[in-house]
Simulated scan of single mutants.
Amino acid sequence: MPELPEVETTCRGIAPHTEGQRVVALHVRQPQLRWLVPEQLVRQLPGQVVCRVHRRAKYILLAMPQGDLLIHLGMSGSLRVLPAGTPALKHDHVDLEFSNGQLIRLTDPRRFGAVLWQDAGSVHPLLQTLGPEPLSEAFDVDYLANCCKDRKQSIKQRIMDNHVVVGVGNIYASEALFAAGIDPRRAAGLVSRRRLGKLVVEVKRVLSYAIERGGTTLRDFVGGDGKPGYFQQELYVYGRKGSPCRCCGSILKEVRLGQRSSVFCAECQS
Results as ranks from 00 to 15, higher is better:
214 G>S: 03
223 G>Y: 08
218 L>A: 11
225 D>L: 13
204 K>F: 04
234 E>Y: 03
203 V>P: 09
212 E>R: 10
239 G>Q: 04
197 G>A: 02
245 C>T: 08
249 G>A: 12
247 C>A: 12
217 T>R: 02
193 R>H: 13
223 G>P: 00
197 G>Q: 03
195 R>K: 12
196 L>Q: 00
221 F>A: 01
246 R>L: 15
204 K>D: 07
192 S>N: 04
230 Y>N: 06
225 D>M: 12
244 P>S: 03
202 E>S: 07
231 F>M: 07
209 Y>H: 13
250 S>I: 09
231 F>Q: 14
207 L>Q: 05
240 R>E: 12
197 G>N: 04
224 G>F: 04
189 G>N: 05
232 Q>M: 08
249 G>F: 02
196 L>E: 05
203 V>S: 09
238 Y>E: 08
209 Y>L: 13
225 D>A: 02
207 L>A: 03
242 G>M: 13
252 L>N: 05
210 A>F: 01
245 C>I: 06
242 G>S: 13
205 R>Q: 15
240 R>I: 14
216 T>W: 00
209 Y>M: 09
248 C>H: 06
248 C>E: 10
206 V>A: 03
210 A>N: 04
228 P>I: 09
220 D>I: 03
218 L>Y: 04
201 V>T: 14
206 V>T: 14
193 R>E: 06
245 C>H: 08
253 K>V: 11
192 S>G: 05
241 K>D: 13
241 K>Y: 12
201 V>C: 10
193 R>A: 06
200 V>L: 01
213 R>D: 04
239 G>R: 03
243 S>P: 01
222 V>T: 13
218 L>I: 02
250 S>R: 12
246 R>T: 15
217 T>G: 06
216 T>I: 05
219 R>D: 12
208 S>A: 15
197 G>S: 08
207 L>S: 03
191 V>R: 00
207 L>T: 04
254 E>I: 14
